[in-house]
Design a protein around this nucleic acid. Structure first.
Lengths: 346, 346
DNA sequence: ATGAAAGCGCTAACAA
DNA sequence: TTGTTAGCGCTTTCAT
């Protein structure tokens, strides 16, 4: 009893069983227009009996859409990107398409490899989250791309492409100003990374506000994981002039910081306020609940996908102006969610 | 200045530019064996100049692997499945393959559609998380599948396929016994769903233990979201005989329950202990930290993918016994993580 | 309403 | 070492 590979039947076999030409079968699987009712039924029956499924590869070779969109993201695990992916998948579903994913772990070379993979697979379009903003090889590749592309969450410096981002600069300004309103004067900006577009924008926003308030600009960039975050905070609070607020630049950093503060027995919002970038499920269940800048994550994914599909539709259309249907860059607003850790009473 | 669609050049154009035949180009892109050094260089230069990328569709049509694996999962957002997906993506990456994802939202029909999509796209293999265990249409489809398949997290009743699951029954037994060891006698089993394989196995495990201990079997199945969970708990605790422990059957239910207990001012581990199924990032940061049954999530994904790729490799091989290289079912062990909410002192 | 035949880009005999 | 050619499964003129 040896289970063997049972290949999918071809259009030819369906045609033979139904005693028609392959053209007729093709007509049937493409809507059944101009086919006799009885012929139609016969063909459909043959399709069902044989378990026939048309080969996408053959169709692609004929120049049809592949009904796939590529998604090149840093991680599929990260709550931010998996939420984006969810929204993208939903939009793709509406367009009868599948999502081809690959992750880059924020490595620029892997981004290139990933995009090339999408080209090779003739994806109808791609959504890419670039790793670093300055990358010549990436710009080159993007400019030669044979399909539409949308840059998500981070634009590529020096390359004019459609992009969908949140207003990181404004978000950081919002956060910093809010902490200042609470009377904080020594705001520590905590991050483990500075090269990513989003993070550098947030740093810019923070800097602008503290500088114009004439407060010290305290940036700590060593907070890559729990251990390093704890060490950094320990250091900061052992000095003679500890911070009175912490602004963490992303999701995981916020959690590390919260956890470290707990362990170091430093409570919030006094002596130190905490305000994080990115909301997370349990933020309001902690003690105190964490105030955050909330990004419209799903909206970022959804908007990216919607724009991409519009581009795909227009790509071969007769309208020479389809590219102008969208702003080059879509910037989505962020929100301050006031909870307790910043000092708000809610 | 009208940006137009610039199609990828074909092997023919490369051949012409390099002044060789298409076969030679084919040889070059497939390793360059049996090609003159100077010819090789010339062809490679042409490839680079033209930005040539071989068409996967044409290769697929010739019967080659597509270097894609299908992933049909309930949600891409759920921490459990996104972690699985991450591990699968990593394994796929090692095999120079991409992951084609589609989500089913646990709807049986969508599972079928999703798998068919993978067939149409000639994925080399598929990893599927079935929606419900009893589904004739699914068994039919699976038995006709022209590629290897691995069932992840949930088997399909009545269909003998390779599957990779965690020991849900044992996990629930472990949890329930542990609560009993803490002296709990009225253990409320809380869930919002009973039809999924994993959940019904957990219910079975719970039942077996409470029954053999002669304790009441208290199962509440209305906990679908925070509101319904809160309502259910309110009801349970307003009676004359409230539970002294809660065993939540999944991730989100645990969080709803924790949150509801907070709001209802019922503290843990007294008067009620809490033990959840599935670990989550912040479980140890809550007050009290939540004890859980921890599943080897990444391992589930990784194992599924590794088995799938072995199957893919053996699928067309000459070894007629390749199917027996693996147990039909791989069951991975779960662990009890003792924190404070169950009554442990840690 | 139906079918014959060409051709999409590639690989693999088979020739040279 | 290199090229010629057939054909993978499908859609699409163009006939009938």
């Amino acid at each position: 009893m040896n289970k063997r590979y049972k290949p999918i039947p071809t259009i030819r076999e369906v045609a033979e069983m139904a005693e028609v030409g392959t053209t007729t079968v093709s007509r049937v699987i493409n809507g059944g227009r101009n086919v006799n009712r009885s012929t139609l039924a016969r063909v459909q029956k043959a399709i069902k009996t044989l378990g026939y499924v048309p080969s996408q590869a053959a169709r692609t070779l004929k120049g049809e859409r592949t009904k796939t969109v590529g998604l090149v993201i840093p991680s599929i695990n990260d709550p931010f990107f998996s939420s984006c992916a969810k929204a993208i998948d939903a939009v793709a579903h509406d367009h009868d398409s599948l999502v081809l994913v690959t992750t880059t772990n924020d490595d620029p070379d892997t981004v290139i490899t990933g995009i090339n993979f999408m080209v090779r697979h003739s994806a109808d379009g791609v959504i890419v989250v670039p790793a670093k903003t300055e990358n010549g090889a990436l710009s080159d590749l993007l400019s030669r791309l044979p399909m539409p592309i949308v840059l998500m969450d981070r634009p590529v410096k020096g390359f004019e492409a459609i992009s969908v981002v949140a207003s990181n600069f404004e978000g950081a300004r919002l956060a910093t100003k809010h902490l200042i309103e609470h009377g904080c004067k020594r705001i520590l900006c905590l991050t483990g990374e500075t090269m990513l577009y989003t993070l550098s924008e947030r740093i810019r926003g923070y800097q602008q506000v503290v500088k114009s308030a004439k407060y010290p600009c305290m940036i700590e960039t060593s907070a890559k994981n729990y251990e390093t975050t704890k060490r950094a905070l320990k250091r900061a609070f052992s000095g003679s002039n500890p911070p009175d607020a912490i602004f963490t630049l992303k999701n995981s950093t916020t959690i590390y910081a919260y956890q470290a503060l707990q362990r170091l027995n430093i409570s919030m919002p006094r002596p130190v306020a905490l305000l994080g970038y990115d909301d997370f499920d349990l933020a309001e269940m902690l003690s105190p609940p964490i105030s955050v800048i909330q990004q419209p994550i799903e909206k970022i994914g959804q908007t990216s996908a919607e724009i991409l599909f519009k581009q795909i539709q227009g790509w071969n259309s007769s309208d020479p102006h389809f590219l102008r249907q969208h702003a080059k860059q879509t910037v989505l607003d962020v929100k301050l969610i006031r909870r307790r850790s910043c000092g708000c009473q809610v």
